[in-house]
């Protein structure tokens, strides 16, 4: 009986004096999921008192969660829009805090067997708007082009629409796939496929070298080309908070921006901001 009581008291004391883990939630860009998960793993190894929970869903979903108060950090592969900042202002009286976490070259994926190696931005636009429908129109085999892309909640979708399609709509036949990994997977299995997404995901597919126009040199989304600004489709990957970060949120962001955190960026396949 004494032992039982002692055990109970020990258990209660242990329970009572165990500080609960501080939880930091990160939600948003699918492009950044792998990067954030790796960051979280390493950070939690060093800070066992903090739990970092990472989920994707797309930049739009993350920004909505930030506005609704259901995430601490939003990952976004595009900048916040005016209307989204307005919602933050209305609800929290703040503009949100934008943190540039990494750089990326928005990549055009082609099947490894595709004989096309390079495309101009205008050709990419016409392909995704449905004006160019056959690979032979851009120097490839006589085969219908199969378009793979992302859903409209994706920041990659919005960035591509704004910067490649210049705001125009995607061709109706584009197959929207949740997650960049899914796009890569589809293109890797489809000889006639074309997709787009972050540089870190291009496993089993090849990049199309991009050029500004027919007379420009073409570039792959390598670190050197992105740093020099030669690659025509570079973008930042962002973290957003509602207001100035503090506590564990600030500590995690500071760590992600440190040389250690930025080394993870390189390892994953993106490019450091500094």
């Amino acid at each position: 009986m004494t032992k039982l009581l002692a055990g109970l008291v020990t258990a209660i004391l242990a329970f009572g004096f165990t500080a609960p883990k501080e939880v930091v939630t990160i939600k948003g860009s699918d492009t950044m999921v792998i990067l954030s998960q790796r960051w979280a793993e390493l950070y939690m190894q060093k800070h066992p008192d903090v739990s970092i929970q990472v989920t994707g869903g797309g930049s739009g979903v993350g920004i909505s969660a930030l506005i609704n108060g259901t995430t601490d950090i939003c990952n976004a592969s595009r900048p916040m829009k005016k209307a989204e900042v307005e919602k933050l202002k209305q609800r929290y009286n703040s503009l949100g805090v934008e943190i540039k976490a990494a750089r990326d070259g928005l990549s055009i994926y082609l099947n490894a067997a595709n004989s096309v190696h390079e495309l101009t931005l205008d050709q990419v636009r016409k392909i995704y708007e449905g004006e160019i429908t056959n690979w032979k129109q851009v120097g490839g085999a006589d085969a219908r082009i199969i378009l793979y892309g992302r859903e409209n909640s994706s920041g990659t979708y919005v960035f591509f629409k704004d910067n490649v399609l210049k705001g125009d709509d995607f061709a109706a036949g584009m197959q929207s796939i949740p997650g960049t990994a899914g796009v890569v997977n589809a293109v890797s299995k489809d000889k006639s496929g074309i997709g787009f997404g972050g540089a870190a995901y291009a496993k089993g597919v090849k990049y199309a070298k991009l050029k500004e126009d027919g007379n420009s040199p073409s570039y792959e989304p390598t670190e050197a080309n992105i740093r020099s600004g030669d690659y025509p489709l570079t973008r930042y990957l962002f973290m957003y908070t509602r207001s100035r970060p503090s506590g564990a949120v600030k500590d995690f962001i500071d760590w992600a921006l440190s040389s250690e955190g930025q080394a993870v960026v390189t390892k994953i396949g993106y490019f450091p901001v500094k």
């Binding site: 202002k89 929290y92 009286n93 703040s94 503009l95 805090v97 509602r242 207001s243 100035r244």
Partner: peptide
């Protein structure tokens, strides 16, 4: 609109 370091959004 100001994100005050001490008080939060105001």
């Amino acid at each position: 609109y100001y994100d005050s370091p001490l008080l939060g959004g105001v």
